[in-house]
Write a protein that binds this DNA or RNA. Structure first.
Lengths: 374, 374
DNA sequence: CTGAAAGCGCTTACAG
DNA sequence: CTGAAAGCGCTTACAG
């Protein structure tokens, strides 16, 4: 049984010879047809400029004739480079990562690299295992998300000397080149916008249930901004969802609203949760934005399609993916110098749509009056 | 410059030796430490049962000591197997594929295979290029979507003798093992359900703008079912969207509704388009399901969150991904026999929610009366 | 059950 | 600019 299943090279070759389909051409065949050495054939293909034009033509012609494509494994083994890049994202279920991965793959492919993909479900231990697997695989570089990892992950990557970039954040305390937006500043601006609309009573729906530095930064941005106005956010006004799902947003809104009916602005750290919050508000007969304002983050497709459409922050996922690819390849091919070149944070535009509005007039007035009377 | 960038093996090794981090252990080191030959060390690791227990222990201990992990490229080159599987999906932007890919990757990883991922944006030519790249890469197997490919794709795969499965369909005219649902039957059932609610005036929002056999099968299922009741669907009642986006669903609904105000049932071939249709209906003040019924397909997360939530068909994406992995590995490791074993279509449950209802009483009565009078 | 040796298909210093 | 040869790190028939 075993012997039938596992075909040793010789058997495989014999079988191929016996069958009608021609065996795959090797560099050796190209060299022979072009009447040059293996070395020259290799050079004509990989560094054409250092080969005499006439000979180069002969080799390239032979390549055509034989429909030759190099064996990537052999190439990898002898060159020490796999032309492979690994990426570990929390999940593909969030469009923000799906879009980023698409762009990453597209750019990587265009530049001759293959993407190895994995997802951690926001679990650092799982992420560590994925990273280790990719390192064993021999990836030339690694793309991660955020700036929080299992304790062993970074030392392992450094031990392998594997180039690394991280994404969706614009800075790393660990010195990793980071391609993304300034999450904190983005919600700071969002909060300022809400403050200008007259909001003073806030609540946050955050997916900080699992370690998530992006969500934490977004929360901090809000906290900063309102603190500047002397407003504090009691801990019970923050709902920590484990996953950024629509259902979690629904539940969060229901609970926060029940506990704090006076809140006028609900800031969500992802669009998915904001979609749930808007849906739940509607179900409860609460008008958006007349009664409460709700904001999202990400600007995924559905954000523009809820009723009312979401005010949110645009995360340029495709741009992040493409730039991460370019940057990583720069480090892989250019050496460590490329690692330290600074990267500007990407723009995270505030997208104002219908889910936010000024605090309802009468209420606001009433409150001010009361405050004055006190 | 060139010489500084590209580190030849010797240089690389010298550098590693000079630096504090120990060079990565090779099988040779393991063998030496265990005082056995390379061959025995290899066997103790890969086929432990054929090695004497005492020696096996020695080797395994050495592996621990040296923290040895095999070089996958070397292993691939000498064994002819990469333990790598390639998948090409239309897009990751649709949750149905994102979820399937997640499950595929998880199962593949659990069984020792690495996923190479690519996306075609529904473009057969692009898909062909991705396939070719993966084949050159040496993938042990391939996972595709649907049953419609560029003319050269299948011959190329067969020439490489690379195991292949396809997904999201339950049968292939090309003899490819298929893991998925019966799309045609699913909409047939959906149509029967709508017929029972009294609907006679249908329109379809399909993403058949680009070649998409799943969408076509879904359309055909409806056509079959209503034909059985003697109802025909004029071509102008079918909107062919190029991409299954929410925006496309919106536009499709607007146009179809304007051109055919008498239509009571809008069947969409994906949830995303149905979400758009529901949103547009609401915007126009058309009540769902009182005035029109709208159905989706896929049962992605948002399907349950629209207002009203969508009646749709559940596509078990995670199951498809996991089964595809198992099946493909079965073919890879078990040989061609595994290719022809039949696969039952997966269950595609009809999920009835709030976006569908009986045809409005008065209208239905009026119509029947009129018909009787005629 | 174990070992010596060939081989997987390339790349690349090294010497011309 | 070109060629002969060693080497990348494994696996596996082959012979004991």
């Amino acid at each position: 049984m075993d012997k039938t299943d596992k075909k040793p090279p010789s058997q495989r070759k014999a079988q191929a010879d016996a069958s009608p389909a021609p065996a795959r051409a090797k560099l050796e065949h190209v060299a022979r047809l072009a009447k040059v050495s293996l070395a020259t054939a290799s050079r004509a293909i990989n560094q054409p400029e250092i080969v005499r034009p006439e000979i180069r033509e002969r080799v390239l012609h032979a390549v055509e004739m034989l429909d030759y494509t190099p064996d990537r494994m052999a190439k990898a083994l002898s060159s020490g480079r796999t032309h492979t890049v690994g990426a570990v994202v929390p999940t593909l279920g969030n469009a923000i990562f799906a879009d980023g991965v698409e762009a990453l793959e597209a750019r990587l492919g265009a530049r001759g690299y293959t993407l190895i993909l994995s997802h951690s479900q926001y679990d650092p231990a799982r992420e560590f295992r994925q990273i280790r697997g990719m390192l064993e695989y021999g990836v030339d570089g690694l793309v991660l998300v955020g700036d929080t990892f299992a304790p062993d992950s970074l030392p392992l990557i450094r031990h392998h000397r594997t180039p690394l970039v991280t994404t969706y954040v614009c800075a790393s305390r660990q010195g990793i080149p980071a391609i993304g937006i300034d999450n904190r500043q983005a919600t700071h601006r969002m909060a300022r916008y809400l403050l200008e609309l007259g909001h003073r009573e806030f609540a946050v729906i955050a997916n900080t249930g699992l370690p998530n530095d992006r969500s934490q930064a977004r929360l901090d941005g809000l906290l900063d901004a309102i603190a500047e106005e002397g407003i504090r956010l009691p801990p019970d006004r923050i709902f920590e969802a484990p996953l950024p799902s629509i259902a979690a947003g629904r539940e969060a809104f229901r609970r926060l609203r029940a506990a704090h009916p006076g809140v006028t602005a609900f800031l969500c750290t992802t669009d998915a949760m904001a979609v749930g919050a808007v849906a739940e508000a509607r179900r409860e007969g609460i008008r958006v934005p007349e009664d409460v304002s709700i904001t999202g983050f990400d600007d995924v497709e559905i954000a523009a399609e809820t009723d009312p459409p979401l005010t949110t922050v645009k995360v340029p996922a495709a741009e992040i993916g493409a730039i991460a690819a370019d940057r990583l390849i720069g480090i892989i091919e250019g050496g460590p110098a490329a690692t330290i070149a600074p990267i500007a944070p990407l723009e995270a535009a505030l997208v104002v749509r219908g889910s936010t509005g000024p605090v309802a007039g009468p209420v606001a007035r009433k409150r001010r009056t009361r405050a004055a009377a006190a």
